[in-house]
Design a protein around this nucleic acid. Structure first.
Lengths: 487, 487
DNA sequence: GGGTATTTGTCCGTATGTATG
DNA sequence: TCATACATACGGACAAATACC
């Protein structure tokens, strides 16, 4: 082995500087290594010698050397000295400013994306007929604050200091099991209830209980586009189950397409707003059992019904354990709290235990606890009533305005449930024209093109929601729409 | 078509009951249909006739009939009457109690699972040498409560009433970008920072930017088992990169295995606790660039260093845009808040925008906002200091007790960083024996077997953590361990 | 070639100004 | 305001490695 070169460095430290002495030493040696002034194998000046040279304590130099050693710039040979490691000086000299150019490029690319262009918040929207967002002031801030305080007052929650597991019993799972039994007829044990961070998280979890190479997703068409996105990201192939051509067509597609997972919205089909009749439900369940398929029942929006009382869930009819029940708090409480839940049938629960053994839930323990109290203390029920009442009023007002304003030029369906109307506009305009001309009048209505995946969307179907708009804005909003579409 | 049978039903309503009249009517007809008393095609008694029969208003009966109609039990033939639909009465009569048996079966299966048996909380654990949980009273409840109140006092947060998107700028992303630049040398724009619901969520998001059919994950072995689990669930194949045989072996494995995604923990290898030297970092980066691979830098636990100051992140050295930086709040603040974050390089950010276009984040807006304030107001920094100090004390105490108690019979590594020691026990016991005999003394230490995936784990490596145990419990805990292993 | 002196890293305790609560 | 904790810097004591006689 070659004799190690002991190198004397010209260092100088500034006692009056605010930079610590040891750091000054560290930086000068570090840059000497990175620029190549010190080569691999060189031995650093001994701690004591250097300390004498520059007039600082030897422990100060020691600190600098140790820092160099932990970064791997020098090797520490015990009781012998510090030796410069092999360093890629060429790489070390490379600039680190690539980011900005590449970022700019990514942004430009994105601006060319059609869906991005359609949805980014640009321009002045006066009337937003959103079908998903809620009334801006609807979140029960005071109650939520109070409950959060209650939970956090329990002097030091130990639960916040440890990992939680999706398996652990907790208050929310208990409350949900009770609530679902009471209101939706869902029969389950709390351990079947799995809190999830929103619907997309729930779907992702669910799909991971299946095999993209073997299982095929039967998907309502038109249907909830988030499902497509999640399924596609996870590599599942999809087959269409027509949701706008009556139940017989829907059921017939099952035999034709033979999916092993079926996504449905029985209590309020999204986006058409129809309801799966009783007989179709039992036939669907029988089909699933006979064909070893599972049914995802997305029951969100079940809270809002305008003509009749809510009808029981598909899960409550399921005698085979074929139904995965799924719902969330987005439509009643808050979309940005990101809380949803799955109710897994026993066979899938076993798979879940296998594949997500001791996995951590994606929902904060604190949020779960607060929501559990929100339900337990009755706030949830009263909030549902309040929200449903508001939606009812806006629903009726929107119906009235549309009928008076448009008469026979539009067809309205999906009027019994949900937070939007599914509207066919027969004025010759394409869907894109309808949205664009509305936007010119500062009115935002929503397209349905992304809800199809096996074929193009019908040209004149759009959604007009009433969940976020103010009651008093509906009439002027529809007037503006008339301006856009009939003028 | 067969003539419709008009059937007279014997109904009776109880005016004194708390059950609404229309529901009494509904329930009796509904059960008549489900039991088969009313067959498909039967025509219901007319609304007016029935109302006269039972002595209630005809609107009450109408309400009941409409309910039957929305559920699909009867068809509403306009201006004619209500006709019973075809119903699968046999199905309707099936019992719904399958659940319990199947559940019991799933539970029994689970109890046979080795990992489940090892980890379920059974028995009395007096000394828990956990390496992940925190001190039970460490969560800053008061500060968190105050900040939550501050956010929720902003009279009615509109953000809580609408869907948020991973694309939206928000306070947390800004704060994190600033913080990471200041403390970890990470250079990024806030839009590259993507909040995630914990590390497993972050990994899942990340893997969905790749293709399980094409991309191969190079994974540290031994390494963080959550990564295996997530990768496996998403269908990725893994190749081992040895993390316990020095850097040369690690780098050599790259050329041999040629992964396209590399998972690393450069600032604190889990579980061995080693640090990737400077030269290895640049070589790793060069390799990634030359081989079109991406590097995941899991920087969790970077906050705790016992011998020297923290060293800059791999991301800060990256001149090519090959590093995905990843960290979380679990080790400093709380594991059950479920907050982590990714910093994506521009090329992957573009992919993210493409595949997760307008997707909703899995973290509550409220939690993000509160955490942002927690950082902005300096609580984070002081909390890090406090936590680090406590860990330092317990680290030293544990080292002292182990050295005094065991001397040369154990080897300790990973002493510079982290919340645990990586210990080799040379008393002839297998890993399983070590854990079991410790448990008999009511002491919990942790096995490493799940951290290997391509071959069996070495028999005598275990982890002894000091993150959750009380300082005063360390000495008696180690004494109990001596009892278990040396007696 | 073995003993010794010296050099070297390492581990202490301590002083001081600054930041924190 | 004050007590406390912390980062920084210092010097001494020690032991291993090395050089020298």
């Amino acid at each position: 082995m070659a004799a190690k070169r002991r190198v004397d460095l010209m260092l100088h430290v500034d006692n009056s500087s605010s930079v610590p002495l040891y750091q000054q030493v560290y930086e000068q040696i570090s840059s000497a290594i990175l620029t190549g002034s010190l080569a691999a194998g060189d031995k650093l000046t001994s701690i004591r010698k250097l300390s004498a040279d520059i007039g600082v304590s030897h422990t100060t130099v020691e600190q600098a050397y140790l820092q160099l050693a932990t970064e791997g710039l020098v090797a520490n040979v015990p009781r012998s000295g510090f030796v410069v490691e092999r360093i890629d000086t060429e790489y070390a000299a490379l600039p680190r400013t690539v980011n900005n150019q590449a970022l700019e490029h990514a942004r430009e690319n994105r601006n060319r994306d059609a869906f991005f262009a359609e949805n980014k918040t640009g321009g002045e929207v006066r009337f937003d007929f959103s079908y998903a967002n809620l009334q801006p002031d609807s979140f029960p801030v005071d109650t939520w604050r109070k409950l959060t305080n209650d939970v956090l007052y329990r002097a030091h929650c130990p639960e916040l200091a440890r990992y939680s597991s999706t398996d652990e019993p907790n208050a929310l799972r208990d409350e949900l099991a009770r609530y679902l039994a009471r209101v939706r007829g869902v029969s389950c044990h709390p351990e079947q209830v799995i809190p999830q961070a929103g619907t997309s998280d729930a779907l992702a979890t669910l799909f991971q209980l299946f095999d993209p190479g073997r299982d095929v997703l039967g998907m309502e068409e038109p249907g909830y586009s988030t499902v497509h996105e999640v399924a596609r990201r996870l590599g599942f192939s999809m087959v269409p189950l027509p949701s706008d051509q009556g139940t017989e067509a829907f059921l017939a597609a099952l035999d034709e397409q033979r999916p092993s997972i079926i996504f449905t919205t029985p209590s309020h089909q999204f986006p058409t707003g129809t309801l799966l009749p009783f007989d179709a439900r039992t036939r669907l369940l029988r089909w699933a059992e006979a064909n070893d398929a599972y049914i995802i029942e997305d029951d969100s929006c079940n809270e809002f019904r305008y003509t009749t009382r809510p009808i029981p869930s598909l899960q409550s009819l399921d005698a085979y354990g074929r139904v995965i029940y799924m719902c969330n708090v987005s439509k009643v409480l808050s979309p940005s709290l990101r809380i949803a839940y799955l109710v897994l049938p026993p066979t899938l629960l076993a798979r879940f235990w296998d594949r997500f053994n001791f996995a951590h839930p994606n929902v904060s323990w604190l949020d779960q606890e607060v929501l559990a109290r929100f339900i337990a203390e009755g706030h949830w029920d009263s909030h549902v009533r309040k929200t449903a009442k508001g939606n009812h009023l806006r629903h009726d007002e929107l119906m009235r305005c549309l009928r008076e304003g448009f008469g026979g030029t539009i067809g309205i369906s999906g009027v019994d449930t949900g937070m939007h109307l599914y509207v066919t506009v027969r004025n010759g305009m394409s869907q894109q024209d309808l949205l664009a001309s509305a936007l010119e009048q500062n009115v935002k209505v929503y397209g349905t093109s992304r809800m199809w995946f096996s074929k193009p969307a019908p040209e004149n179907n759009i959604m007009i929601g009433f969940s976020a708009i103010a009651l008093s804005d509906i009439e002027p909003g529809v007037t503006a729409l008339k301006q856009a579409w009939l003028a």
